[in-house]
């Protein structure tokens, strides 16, 4: 019996205007595996994560999550198919007109009937997650603009975990964090890496995080996802321009 890969990219490419950011990226990630993507700043790691998560459509090629093609206009369809995504953005992503608590409860409220949660359970889960990530109670009702960058990152992580994701996409998850919070996040990511129900996709430049995750990273360079059997030299001189 063959098992369906959790995440599948077939010759996926993406461009902004005339600039190709991703070129012919193919990968197949089984459920519970971890993919670490590294590369220089501005090389397209965030774009790769967006395409993998189905937040933006690939210009060409195909993306599948648990066998389903994501549609950015109807993302709830994926949730109905059992695809629960958590995403931590490098530069924010929290709803600016909603409190920290409101941000975490939003996906739970939106899919309340699907998850079988009532208002009390939603609130309790959000508070528990924020507490676990050491967000102080005083910050629960603050708007993201009134929170420090580190707290915003922790709220973002709590929101991503709220839906019990089977896919967790993390874009520079340890940026702006102090040493204690970094340790907390690393422990959490280690736990998630060992969870067979969570497929983890991490984009980072942090050697400390790569070391903690213990997964050989794949480099993104010139739009190509390099890795076993694929290097810039095997792609030819055009890839190095």
């Amino acid at each position: 019996m063959t098992t369906l890969p959790a995440l599948e990219l077939e010759h996926a490419s993406h461009r902004y205007g005339d600039l190709w950011v991703l070129r012919d990226v193919s990968l197949s990630l089984p459920a519970g595996e971890t993919l670490v993507v590294t590369g220089e700043n501005g090389v397209g790691k965030s774009t790769l994560l967006y395409v993998c998560a189905g937040l933006i459509p690939a210009t060409s090629g195909r993306v599948r999550l648990l066998g389903h093609v994501p549609n950015p206009n109807r993302p709830s369809e994926l949730v109905h198919h059992g695809v629960r995504r958590g995403f931590v953005f490098s530069g924010g992503g929290l709803l600016s007109n909603t409190s920290a608590l409101g941000n975490v409860t939003l996906p739970l409220r939106y899919h309340a009937d699907l998850f079988g949660l009532d208002e009390a359970a939603i609130e309790a889960r959000a508070r528990e997650l924020l507490g676990e990530l050491r967000v102080s109670q005083a910050d629960f009702h603050a708007l993201p603009a009134h929170l420090s960058a580190g707290v915003r990152r922790r709220v973002s992580l709590a929101r991503a975990l709220a839906v019990s994701p089977n896919f967790l996409f993390l874009d520079d998850p340890d940026a702006d964090l102090d040493a204690a919070t970094k340790r907390l996040v690393y422990d959490l990511l280690e736990r998630l890496r060992n969870d067979p129900g969570v497929t983890l996709i991490v984009a980072t430049t942090s050697s400390e995080l790569i070391e903690r995750l213990g997964v050989p990273p794949r480099e993104l360079a010139h739009g190509y996802l390099l890795g076993p059997g694929r290097s810039l030299s095997t792609l030819g001189p055009a890839a190095q321009c």
């Binding site: 993302p75 953005f89 924010g92 996906p107 839906v163």
Partner: peptide
């Protein structure tokens, strides 16, 4: 990136 965040959350 708030709209992208909504998409990621299945909203």
């Amino acid at each position: 990136q708030e709209v992208l965040a909504l998409i990621a959350l299945g909203v």
